[in-house]
Design a protein around this nucleic acid. Structure first.
Length: 417
RNA sequence: GCGUCCAUAGUUCAGCCGGUAGAGCAUCAGAUUGUGGCUCUGAAAGUCACGGGUUCGAAUCCCGUUGGACGCCCCA
């Protein structure tokens, strides 16, 4: 008989790991708030058409990675593979955009992509991200990058790289794609099989290829920066000038393209060498056309997302987050189950005074209870036995100093520990 | 979707050329009977991932399935 186990590519977050998640989630909320972003949560699943329209038919996410089901009503629904499209859907549907100002949101949650698991890649994974909607100006690109950077620093990651590039307006992006494509077609004999296939589907992606043969050809490929039109160039220049003035470290990486169809103008990516093959732990960019594409009024926007599992891999490699053990303040023990009422009375009194209190639930001997108190790291053990009951007292044992005193039962409510 | 390696007690692993399982740590219990940490003694714990095959006999060989690790594709 087959044992039931968790679905391939999914993971339990165990008590020994949970402190990392709680720390990250706290940081996400705190730092996002400092930048004036508010949290928005959308359902885990959506109309499949949302992602087809929003992410793009040419992407692998839509083509082979979506968890899509037909529900009992015959509708096609999909577990969200990313947040941006769904967030925009919500913003449009709920009329959250105010005329003449930006709307800024952050999110955190699980996402789903049907892929072969490997380092830093799961079928259910988590992202934190932020979206700044309704400013076409480069300073909003910068703000979003500052927010991302600030989160990275606050969680304690210092060794990483920020790569940045511009795809330009739709127009200049198309011009560049044509130029690149004809260059690659001229040289296609030297390209890898994968890249030959990519020529038609998404030639920009060839720039990212890890294949050595491809790299040789790519080295002499046309540079996207040369194809930016005037406005795109100004936008990009302002972004990088501002970042420089603010002492943000970055590298202009003309070969950086992002996989999602909706990006234009600024794109960026955060890299760490703690990650193995999937070395990017976050990425984002501007998507000026998406909102209109999803049925809203035309509105520019820029955003980014982090892969939270990847952040945790980096933090683990730094050994930064040791477990914050929640040790009990008290362990209340007794010599007999006759005194259970006293044990729980004392426990509840102490809990009302805001102490963490634990008890023996398997009726161990006093020695066993003391062992457990020690193992749990309790500061104090309380012992209630025949003698104490007779005298109306308890024994208060200080576990770190190995000293003990006798306390009147009534003192528990007011004794200064 | 493709490739390589892997799957034995709670855990980390040993078990080489086939003869029905072992260690460290962890757990639990004792060490002149109401008290922890050290030490000592003992105990419990595995249908050797699942299914099939070869064999007198398989954890050990073969096939399949499931899952894991890493890589390709792609992405966070």
């Amino acid at each position: 008989m087959k044992n039931i186990q968790s679905i391939k590519g999914t993971k339990d977050t165990l008590p020994s790991e949970i402190h990392k998640w709680q720390f990250l989630e706290d940081t996400f909320r705190r730092v996002s708030t400092k930048y004036g972003y508010t949290e928005l949560r959308t359902p885990i699943f959506e109309d499949s058409a949302l992602f087809h329209r929003g992410i793009g038919e040419g992407t692998d996410i839509v083509n082979k990675e979506m968890y899509t089901f037909i529900d009992k009503g015959g509708d096609s629904v999909t577990l969200r593979p990313e947040q941006t499209a769904a967030l925009i859907r919500s913003v449009v549907q709920n009329n959250l955009l105010q005329l003449g100002t930006t709307s800024k949101f952050w999110y955190f949650g699980p996402y789903f992509r049907y892929e072969r698991p490997q380092k830093g890649r799961l079928r259910q994974f988590h992202q934190y991200g932020a979206e700044c909607i309704a400013s076409p100006f480069p300073e909003s690109d910068v703000e979003v990058i500052l927010l991302a950077n600030s989160i990275i620093r606050e969680i304690g990651i210092e060794d990483y790289k920020l790569n940045i590039n511009s795809l330009g307006s739709e127009n200049s992006r198309n011009n560049y794609r044509d130029a690149l494509k004809s260059y690659l077609i001229e040289n296609q004999d030297g390209l890898s099989e994968d890249s030959k296939r990519r020529l038609d589907i998404n030639p920009l992606r060839i720039l990212d290829s890890k294949d050595e043969k491809d790299k040789l050809i790519i080295a002499n490929a046309p540079n996207i920066i040369d194809y930016l039109d005037e406005e795109s160039k100004n936008h990009f220049d302002t972004v990088i000038n501002l970042l420089s003035q603010l002492n943000v470290n970055f590298t202009i990486e003309p070969k950086l393209v992002r996989g999602l169809d909706y990006y234009n103008h600024t794109v960026f990516e955060f890299q760490s060498n703690a990650l193995g093959s999937q070395d990017s732990f976050g990425g984002g960019g501007r998507y000026n056309g998406l909102i209109e594409q999803l049925g809203g009024k035309p509105n520019p926007a820029v955003g980014f997302a982090f892969g939270v599992e990847r952040l945790i891999i980096i933090l683990d490699s730094l050994n930064k987050l040791s477990e914050l053990e929640s040790k009990p303040d008290f362990y209340i023990s007794s010599t007999s189950e006759k005194y259970l009422d006293k044990v729980y009375f004392v426990s509840e009194v102490l809990r009302k005074r805001n102490f963490n209190v634990q008890n023996d639930l398997v009726r161990k001997s006093v020695k066993g209870q003391m062992r457990e108190a020690n193992k749990l790291g309790a500061k104090y053990a309380v012992i209630i036995g025949d003698d104490e009951i007779a005298k109306g007292t308890i024994i208060l044992k200080n576990m770190t100093e190995s000293t003990q005193v006798e306390l009147a039962f009534d003192d528990i409510e007011k004794h200064q520990f």
